[in-house]
């Protein structure tokens, strides 16, 4: 199930090709993307995100305390 969530989050971020860097930080994924405009916020929320903060190519996805584990799952998909 964790893998499925990681996959859905990655897809909503524009796929592996759009991810420059991603890291988990306690409650959120800090993502540096090639193109921040393609992020699908609705899909992120459907995948369990509590909130999404965008600042250009840097997107923070608030996923709760499993952020570190989810970031590792996403790393495995890159």
């Amino acid at each position: 199930m964790a893998d499925e969530r990681a996959g859905r989050i990655l897809a909503a971020l524009g796929g592996a090709g759009n991810v420059v860097e991603i890291e988990g930080c306690i409650t959120r994924l800090r993502c540096e993307l090639e193109d921040g405009s393609v992020v699908d916020e609705a899909a992120l929320k459907q995948a369990g995100a509590h909130g999404v903060m965008k600042a250009g190519s840097v997107v923070q996805v608030v996923v709760g305390p499993e952020a570190d584990a989810i970031a590792e799952d996403i790393q495995d998909l890159l």
Binding site: T27, H50, G51, M53, Q60, V62, G64
Partner: peptide, 9 residues
């Protein structure tokens, strides 16, 4: 920080 101020977690 909105994550905390909006009690997102």
């Amino acid at each position: 920080d909105p994550v905390f101020s909006q009690a997102m977690v």
